[in-house]
Design a protein around this nucleic acid. Structure first.
Length: 596
DNA sequence: TGAGCCTGTCATTGT
DNA sequence: AGACAATGACAGGCT
């Protein structure tokens, strides 16, 4: 079906073939008349567009020829004499292509491949390795093309008939050299290699693109053998493909040129290798260091809009507060609510009954659980204050080596633990905030506070460690940490309590998890046992049935044997009067049954 | 409003 | 003996 300009007659012929061939494995829809009709219409449109495009190409070719003539005094179709200096070889082809600025003048945008195509058509070159290298990029590309974009088979590689074959013409030596140098341009080769590599390793899937899903896209006329848009379509990101929107790129109005440059890479007019790469792999250019990275984020247009993700930086535990400004206002309130339920300090402060009066600045660290309740009312403030406290009290010098890492992980963990906390107040708790220490009401809103309760306590007692550190540090490190700080009795007790609670909390979690796993394991075991029981019962019933059958067979055999036995008078023995018994040596005896 | 679940905490025991 | 893990029990919060 690779017919180029398929006439309606051809299509009818193909129709017939389709209908006749039931072994093609083609889906039913390809035989659908409406479907085919739509395809015919689409094909006609494509043919028209192709004609327009070819016409434009001819115009551009004329312009190019004119330009080339202007460039040379000799009248040859050579864009410009090429310096042979190696240093300039990388620049000159760019100049060539830049000089061929037909697109700007014509107001049409052409892709790099279109230019190559134009060059090839203007100065057809015999197949060389270089050209095949260049155009081979199209062959490795997945067949992704929009219906509006005529599928263009590899031009110079295709031995098939060419609808518009350029007359065989030998490229002028200079131009050929320029062509080779252009192909040997490092940037271009890099781009091409990236292109090939990308098409091989990373396709540009268009999950929702009908062009890709349409199994019949190959029916679209493949009239033009030079690779133009196809190549671009194959390699350009999906968002670029979606920008075609049915318009032929070369017919793009000039006023949209800049916009099209940004969207459609094939519309670029400056064919420098860099711009080539830049257009096709904007991410790769943007992220100079991570070329492959740039190639991966092309499916989504928004990806390019997303700012480059900054490298992972250590989380600043002191910047975790969601609202310091709001929370600072509560600091005086929350700061006066420290407590340790260790039983060591729990003398109710004289100020405990007057929340408005802070004991924080008094240096007092003896608090009641009722104070903790007030802390519970402001868990958010406690969180922020906690971070704020550590921003003040945290002494990096105290944590060296492994401790710093531990503290970091602990802070990270802490950050995670803070997230789900909720903020509520309970009037009942407020009324009971003067309760004696160790009352159970301190456990209210436990889910609200969780570690933040200990965090608040730690803050209140100015303990310069994170709760995560206190909890997670190994014993030796923890003891070392404690020894490095002059903590008073209440602080030490609180730290021990925090550590105990933290570890117990983890232990409880593990225990419950283990319990659940055990339950699940037992359930699985129960299921397997049930299955085995069923199997055994089935087997038992089967055996019972077999046994019953065997008994019946044996009984019938027994009766049969009896029926064949005769006494000296020729009378048969009655099974009710006699029985057959087998002795240990295998001999059979007819034994009279004893009367009951 | 009560039931059920989840989670933190305490007390206890074992390692 | 002390630290820690494991676990039952309890209580509070949440749905």
């Amino acid at each position: 079906t690779g017919c180029g300009g398929c006439s309606s007659h051809d299509m009818n012929l193909i129709d017939i073939l389709w209908k006749q061939d039931i072994d093609l494995g083609a889906r039913r829809e390809v035989f659908d008349y409406n479907h085919r009709q739509k395809e015919h219409e689409l094909q006609r449109q494509l043919e028209l567009e192709e004609e327009k495009r070819l016409h434009l190409l001819r115009e551009q070719e004329k312009a190019l020829l004119a330009q080339l003539q202007l460039d040379e005094e000799t009248g040859e179709y050579i864009p410009r004499p090429l310096p042979s200096a190696p240093l300039q070889s990388a620049v000159t082809p760019l100049e060539v292509t830049q000089n061929v600025s037909f697109t700007e003048e014509n107001g049409d945008a052409m892709s790099f491949d279109e230019c190559l195509q134009l060059l090839a058509e203007t100065f057809p070159v015999e197949e060389t390795e270089d050209t095949s290298v260049c155009l081979d990029t199209t062959t490795v590309s997945p067949p992704m093309m929009s219906p509006e974009q005529p599928a263009l088979p590899p031009a110079t590689l295709s031995p098939g008939p060419l609808p518009t074959p350029p007359p065989p013409q030998r490229m002028s030596p200079d131009l050929e050299q320029a062509w080779m140098e252009l192909l040997s341009l490092p940037e271009l080769q890099q781009c091409l290699s990236m292109q090939m590599e990308d098409t091989q390793s990373t396709t540009y899937p268009l999950p929702n693109s009908p062009e890709v899903q349409n199994p019949n896209y190959s029916f679209y006329p493949m009239t033009n053998l030079t690779e133009g848009e196809t190549n671009n379509v194959n390699v350009c990101p999906a968002e670029f493909m979606n920008t075609f929107d049915g318009s032929v790129p070369s017919m793009a109005p000039p006023d949209n040129l800049s916009q099209m440059k940004a969207k459609a890479p094939q519309l670029n007019t400056d064919f420098t290798a860099e711009s080539f790469c830049d257009i096709f792999y904007p991410n790769a250019i943007l992220e100079e260091s991570g070329g492959q990275q740039g190639l991966e984020g092309h499916e989504n247009d928004s990806m390019s809009d997303i700012p480059t993700k900054p490298p992972l930086t250590p989380v600043d535990p002191y910047s975790l507060s969601p609202g310091d400004a709001f929370d600072r206002g509560k600091q005086s309130l929350t700061a006066e609510l420290p407590d340790s339920d260790s039983g060591i300090s729990s003398n109710t402060s004289p100020n405990a009954s007057s929340p408005g009066k802070s004991v924080y600045g008094d240096g007092s660290f003896l608090y009641s659980d009722s104070d903790m309740e007030e802390m519970d009312h402001n868990p958010g403030s406690a969180e922020s204050d906690y971070s704020e406290m550590f921003s003040i009290n945290f002494q990096p010098d105290d944590f060296q080596g492994a401790l710093s890492l531990t503290s970091l992980t602990g802070q990270l963990q802490e950050q995670q633990e803070k997230k789900p906390k909720q903020h509520k107040t309970d009037p009942a708790e407020e009324s009971g905030h003067n309760n004696a220490p160790f009352t159970k009401d301190k456990q209210k809103k436990r889910s609200d506070v969780r570690l933040s309760r200990d965090e608040q306590r730690a803050k209140a007692l100015k303990i310069p460690f994170t709760v995560a550190m206190i909890t997670n540090l190994p014993v030796d490190d923890f003891n070392e940490l404690m020894s490095k700080h002059q903590l008073n009795e209440a602080q030490l007790a609180l730290v021990r309590d925090i550590r105990r609670r933290g570890k117990n909390k983890v232990a409880a979690q593990n225990c419950r998890k283990r319990k659940m796993e055990n339950i699940m394991g037992l359930e699985g075991e129960l299921d397997s046992l049930k299955e085995e029981k069923e199997r055994l019962l089935s087997e038992k019933s089967q055996n019972t049935a077999n046994l019953k059958e065997m008994k019946q067979q044996l009984n019938s055999l027994y009766l049969e044997v009896f029926s064949m036995l005769r006494d000296e008078k020729g009378n048969s023995y009655s099974p009710s009067d006699y029985s057959l018994q087998q002795s240990t040596n295998g001999s059979i005896f007819l034994v009279p049954r004893s009367p009951v």
